[in-house]
Design a protein around this nucleic acid. Structure first.
Length: 595
RNA sequence: GGCUUCGUAGUACAAUGGAUAGUAUUUCAGAUUCCGAUUCUGAAGAUGCAGGUUCGAUUCCUGCCGAGGCUACCA
């Protein structure tokens, strides 16, 4: 039973009775704190059919509702705003229906399917802060769609081939002395990343040396021996040279096992991985088919292009003159392959940074031109860059924040602060570790998810480890404190039941506010999925926790002498805790029983 | 240059075309005989500039100023 839709239909009835007309869209909004009431009807748009001033329209509807609808007990009109006071019996009924439904908020399976791609890093460098935003976003959006009834497939494309990995391979071969993750104890992705940096360092030195000998810069860049080695390796790899492929697969293996442990700590998962090395040739076939059908065209030099000038874009190359694929070609193939693998998905969500907006615009247009209906259902979940207080993250300037280091830093800070509070002195070391992990990652995830994905954001490491304010740990704390209340209630054998809930009257304003928030959960979920925005859920969870804290501060629960009211408040606290827990789970954030 | 996204308190973030623009942080002033004060209450402080549409604009439109991104036979 959704309070808002009930109220809407009552208002519709009033409008029909009073003005003999109906309205498609009612503007209902939460009442400002300074006025009495919880729901406010905006009356300005209704004056057209009421033929009355906004105030008079509000009064007429308000009076009708009080007289004819059991829902509204009082009303007041301020300018053109009709503020409605919902009667306690309705609040209690709304609460009861939520309390009775353990799956409150969740849409049952609809049979619809969807694919979400996220992460998709290159294999030459460890994951950094930007990847954290990507992974948390993609994971959360996938969870949001599950919650609204979709069967969701989480995937990623791994860019495992190309010159970038060959650079690491070349440097390792020259300077590695056979180093392995086992021999040096270095995490696999870090080790490969180290040689990528090593490549860059030596490459630059060699170019400089050549230039000093009078070689022009452009030539020097091509002649540098280490670059020649890397290019040579790429060619050998494409020719399937056994030794090169072996080294490639060994080094990629190191990276994958490094990534795996990072993903595990992040708490993200994938149903299926796609590898560029397996799919990069598939797009070529489709592109050549497109040429036959006249969708694409071939230039004199043999390169293949698509003309998107009619769509307001440019011409875009799809195959080089030597016949090799570009990134776009591979993405065409991968998309088609995915719909073959999962024929029931209605679309794909690509979680990729906003610097590739143009790329995806082009990709979706091309897929449409190739006749794939599902192209319309593909969505680029574009997100803004993450900046640091010191400015942009730049690998060249060494200001990139490593994902593993950052997670560790957050967890360490969480441990220190939690121990200081001293509420967990009886916990074992393992329990404390687990708790620190939960809190540290919550600080990080919440900070990155509370901002609208589209927007560029600032990540301040110092601020983010503050475990107070508009943060994940604040919400976790609220949850843990409610759990303490519930433990106490259980020890006192206070058990809520439907019968005692029904007898409750005289709710406090703070209780209305919290029920109002809990009642919003379903709508917020729909909105968050529709907008592809975990930020909506993050802010919702925060508001709910804050609202409950106000109730908690204002109303002593166990001092209540009315047994029914006491039981109601316990049930009420329980529902709040569950809703917080479910909302946070959608963000990939766990909440502790104690902290 | 063309295309595109964004400019909200000192700082970081909110606001389906609706009320006196919310929240956090910061600063100041308060609250704990009571369920966990990492909490709560109060105060101070903001829509880049100029127009337009509207009963009403942070939101929509135009121009300007400022900041990103894209504009490769790179990925």
């Amino acid at each position: 039973m959704n309070l808002d839709s009930l109220l809407r239909s009552e208002i519709q009835k009033a409008i029909t009775a009073l003005f003999n007309q109906s309205v498609e869209q009612l503007q209902l909004q939460p009442t400002n704190a300074e006025f009495e009431g919880s729901h406010t009807l905006v009356c300005f748009p209704l004056t057209r059919i009421s033929k009355l001033k906004p105030e008079e329209t509000g009064n007429a509807i308000g009076q009708y509702l009080v007289e004819h609808s059991g829902m509204v007990s009082r009303y007041n009109v301020v300018k053109g705003f009709l503020n409605l006071v919902i009667s306690d019996s309705v609040w209690v009924k709304v609460f009861e229906s939520i309390y009775a439904n353990p799956n409150y908020g969740i849409t049952p399976a609809t049979g619809k399917e969807l694919m979400v791609e996220y992460s998709s890093p290159n294999t030459n460098k460890p994951l950094h802060l930007g990847h954290l935003r990507n992974n948390f976003l993609g994971y959360s959006v996938a969870e949001l769609y599950k919650a609204v009834g979709y069967n969701v497939h989480k995937v990623q494309i791994i860019n495992d081939r190309g010159i970038h990995i060959c650079k690491s391979m070349a440097a390792w071969k020259l300077y590695g002395n056979g180093e392995t993750p086992e021999s040096s104890g270095l995490k696999g992705d870090k080790l490969v990343g180290k040689y990528y940096v090593e490549f860059d360092k030596n490459y630059k030195a060699q170019v400089k040396q050549l230039q000093e000998k009078g070689v022009a810069e452009a030539d020097a860049e091509k002649q540098a021996p280490i670059m020649k080695l890397a290019v040579d390796m790429l060619q050998k790899w494409e020719a399937k040279d056994a030794d090169t492929v072996k080294l490639w697969s060994t080094m990629n293996g190191w990276v994958y096992s490094g990534f795996d442990s990072t993903y595990k700590r992040m708490g993200v998962d994938f149903e299926k991985l796609y590898y560029e090395s397996n799919t990069y040739l598939l797009g070529k076939e489709e592109v050549l088919k497109g040429v036959e059908k006249g969708i694409f065209f071939k230039k004199e030099d043999g390169s293949v292009w698509v003309d998107l000038t009619a769509d307001g874009l440019d011409q875009k190359v799809l195959l080089r003159s030597d016949g090799t694929s570009v990134y776009m070609t591979q993405d065409i193939g991968t998309a088609i392959l995915r719909f073959r693998d999962f024929p029931k998905i209605e679309g794909q969500i690509y979680t990729v940074g906003n610097e590739q907006e143009y790329h995806f615009k082009v990709l979706f247009l091309i897929l449409g031109k190739l006749g794939y209906e599902w192209a319309k259902k593909c969505y680029h979940l574009s997100y803004g860059m993450v900046d640091l207080p010191s400015g942009k993250m730049k690998s060249r300037e060494g200001t990139v924040v490593d994902a593993d280091d950052l997670m560790q830093e957050m967890v360490d800070a969480a441990r220190v602060q939690t121990l200081e509070l001293g509420k967990i002195d009886d916990m074992t070391k393992e329990e404390i570790d687990e708790l620190a992990e939960m809190i540290g990652l919550s600080a990080l995830k919440f900070f990155l998810l509370k901002v609208d994905p589209k927007k560029r954001m600032m990540f301040d490491p110092n601020e983010s480890i503050q475990l107070q304010g508009h943060t994940g740990p604040f919400i976790q704390y609220t949850h843990a404190r409610i759990k303490a209340i519930l433990r106490k209630a259980a020890s006192m054998n206070i058990v809520a039941d439907q019968n005692s809930l029904q007898k409750v009257t005289g709710l406090e304003p703070a209780e209305h506010e919290v029920i109002f928030k809990i009642n919003q959960y379903t709508n917020k979920l729909q909105e968050a999925a529709r907008e592809y925005s975990p930020a909506i859920i993050a802010n919702y969870a925060y508001e709910l926790a804050k609202e409950y804290n106000q109730f908690y501060q204002a109303i002593p629960i166990f001092n209540e002498s009315d047994a029914d009211k006491l039981k109601f408040r316990i049930a009420f606290s329980e529902v709040t805790a569950n809703t917080i827990k479910k909302a946070m789970a959608l963000l990939g954030i766990r909440v502790p029983e104690r902290m």
